[in-house]
Structures are given as C-alpha cells and as structure tokens.
C-alpha cells in the first residue's frame, strides 16, 4: 500500500505525531477537518494526551492495514486486537471514551461502552474486593454491589 500524503497531529502536550492520511481519516472528526481545509499545517487535538493519542493511532493503523475482506482469519485477528485493546485499566478506558467521543470513532466506542457496561453489570465478590483496594473508581463498587443486591432479591 502506498501512502500519498501525511498529516501532522498536535496533541494536548504540544507533541506532534506524523500520520499517513489514510490512517488519519479513520476518526471522522479529523476527516471533516481535512475536508474543510483546516489541515494545511497541523491538526490540533487539545483534549487528547500523547498516551491516548498513540493508542488511538495504533488502533486506526491496525484497522486500515488489515485488508477489508471477508476472510475469516483477518476478521478474527482484528477482533482479538480490539479485545486486547480494551483490556486497559479504568483510567485509560475513561480517557479513551472521552478521546474517541471527541474524535468520533464509533466502532471502538461501542466496544468500550460495552466493556464499561459489563463492569457495571456483573461483579464477583473477589473483583469487588479488588476494586475497593484499587479505589480508583469508587462508584463501580457501588453499582456492582447494588446490582448484586437486586439480582439476589429479584424484584
């Protein structure tokens, strides 16, 4: 695959990322900026940190580079990539939600929503204990406990 053009993305910390245009247009927000002619120098992405932006770029690259075919192997590979991608700590997941929502990458957003929803839905006691210890996201414990409580009572 030959890439004709590169796009420069500048993030929150002022760091720049040089990305091939085919990869950069995966997020709809950037695609629209390019269409509107705002991409002559570099595209500012003030609400995205470099850690998250490099993760997003990694994701877009993978999806662009995987041939768009019905081949089972390619599909399975992409699926397992996405699966590993959302296996991040909660802080990263929330940063990703905000970044993806801003950049408008729908497919991945749905996957992350699903991941967080699963956290809300079902928790084993050990997991809850772990959550309490980590203490990063107090409320998920609460939700987990309440859901378990209601499940055990079944209205």
């Amino acid at each position: 695959m030959s890439y004709s053009k590169t796009i420069v993305l500048t993030n929150y910390d002022g760091e720049t990322f040089v990305v091939d245009e085919v990869v950069a247009v995966e997020p709809q927000t950037i695609e629209h900026m390019i269409e509107d002619g705002c991409a002559n120098t570099s595209i500012p992405l003030p609400n995205v940190t470099s850690k998250i932006l490099s993760k997003v770029i990694e994701h877009c690259k993978k999806h662009v580079e995987t041939p768009n075919s019905n081949e089972k192997a390619a599909k399975a590979d992409l699926k397992s990539f996405d699966f590993d991608f959302v296996k991040a700590d909660q802080g990263t997941l929330f940063d990703l939600i905000l970044a993806m929502n801003y950049l408008n990458i729908k497919e991945l957003l749905d996957l992350i929503y699903q991941t967080v929803a699963d956290m809300i839905k079902g928790k084993t006691p050990e997991e809850e204990e772990e959550m309490r210890r980590v203490n990063a996201w107090v409320f998920s414990c609460f939700v987990g406990v309440t859901c378990l409580y209601f499940k055990s009572k079944k209205m």
Partner: peptide
C-alpha cells in the same frame, strides 16, 4: 475519584444502553 460520574449524561446513557433499563434504574 470517580471517572464514571464525571462523564457527561449522554456518554453515561450510551454506556447504560448496553445494560437493561432495570439495571439503569437501579443506578
């Protein structure tokens, strides 16, 4: 402290769209 609660309502709605409305009411 609480990243989930600090998300905007529409994002929380989208997350809760993946659980039943019963679970959403329970929150």
């Amino acid at each position: 402290g609480d990243r989930l609660s600090s998300l905007s309502d529409d994002l929380i709605h989208k997350i809760m769209s993946f659980v039943s409305i019963k679970c959403a009411v329970e929150t």
